[in-house]
Design a protein around this nucleic acid. Structure first.
Lengths: 194, 194
DNA sequence: CAAAAACGAACTAACGGTCGTTAGGTATGA
DNA sequence: TCATACCTAACGACCGTTAGTTCGTTTTTG
């Protein structure tokens, strides 16, 4: 691993756990094992470092979700949705990248608010499109109550964020409790009666 | 309005829009129209000011939700739930108190993390109990699919937070879209088939 | 040897917070 | 009634610290 990517990793971690303002370049440098000015050999400013890390995290998360949906596209969509939610919840505990993205998309550094939003918007729109087109495949659409794939997709995203919100400010266990309460209700609301 | 409550109002606003670290006492004082040291005539420290504002906001929000549920307890619970969600969404645009609470319960200042959580936990537990006991009234319970009031309540909270999450980082319009997608699905998942 | 990377020192700006002082109101008491 | 004492709120000046950043120099490396 190069020095540069070591800086990025540490920065991601500290941004995720302490927020942009509280994660100082001094702390980042110390955790990497270099001095503060050395960071400027690789990044023009703190904001530059942040945007670099943010874009990278977004790209990686996009890839992960795309792969998950593609690999499971022939299984019943409830299973795919449930396993995706569980996976994101696990990641929120184990993977700083997910914590970072959730925190920074909710509350970006105020000076970078607009730039961050311009990156996040396409992400959400693509996620919605992706889920919708999955649900529109004949295999799945015929099992949908109203046949309205887009609303089912949007509702899933909403439920997912409600569960992840709980995962953020308490523990995975409590979030799991929520997931187990809400998911059967979601399925019953979306699937055709048997 | 007294000076002290003016300081609290401005602090709430800045904490909500910029976060704890970025909302400096200098900015707060300037917005009030006083000098920084004058704040210390009313509060012992920045953390003291924060906790003061936080407790006040929490109390006020608790009262609001309690009143809403009591006033509507004889109407169909779907209507009550929907209007409560809309009201909280509106508040998130117009009322800094709601934005403040959402932001600070997700990501409290790290030095106050434990104290904030000890205040938030009872709030959520009480909300869950309150919703559950509402749903357990015969009038409503007989209309529930599984009869499990607690899971229906928890699912509602989850859905609500998913909608509010969208309201935080985009606009009320987009959050409304989510609410309109997810709420019918929630109702169908929870109500007995007609 | 040249380019890249790292560093020590130091800069400016801003932070939260303290200190001594002042202005204005109020209660006291002879 | 007037002088006194007291209190609160506000303030200017300033403290120590830390932030992000720059610069000139040294070290490392290809």
């Amino acid at each position: 691993m190069t020095r540069k990517s070591a800086i990025e990793d540490v920065a991601l971690d500290l941004f995720a756990s302490e927020g942009f303002e509280a994660a100082s370049l001094g702390k980042i440098a110390e955790a990497v094992g270099i001095r503060k000015p050395s960071i400027y050999a690789h990044f023009r400013s703190k904001e530059d470092l942040f945007l670099h890390v943010f874009k990278q995290a977004l790209r990686s998360k996009k890839r992960m979700m795309l792969r998950h949906l593609l690999e499971n596209r022939d299984r019943p969509f409830e299973e795919t949705f449930l396993s995706l939610a569980k996976r994101l919840m696990d990641d929120n505990e184990s993977d700083a990248q997910t914590r970072f993205l959730l925190r920074m998309s909710y509350f970006p550094p105020s000076s970078l608010h607009d730039q961050v939003m311009e990156l996040m918007n396409p992400f959400f729109m693509q996620a919605e499109r992706l889920l919708t087109s999955l649900l529109e495949r004949p295999l799945h659409q015929t099992r949908l109550q109203t046949g309205n794939a887009q609303e089912a997709a949007l509702a899933y995203i909403t439920v997912l964020e409600g569960v992840l919100a709980e995962a953020i400010y308490t523990t995975r266990d409590k979030a799991t409790r929520r997931l187990e309460a809400v998911f059967p209700i979601y399925c019953r609301g979306v699937l055709i009666n048997k």
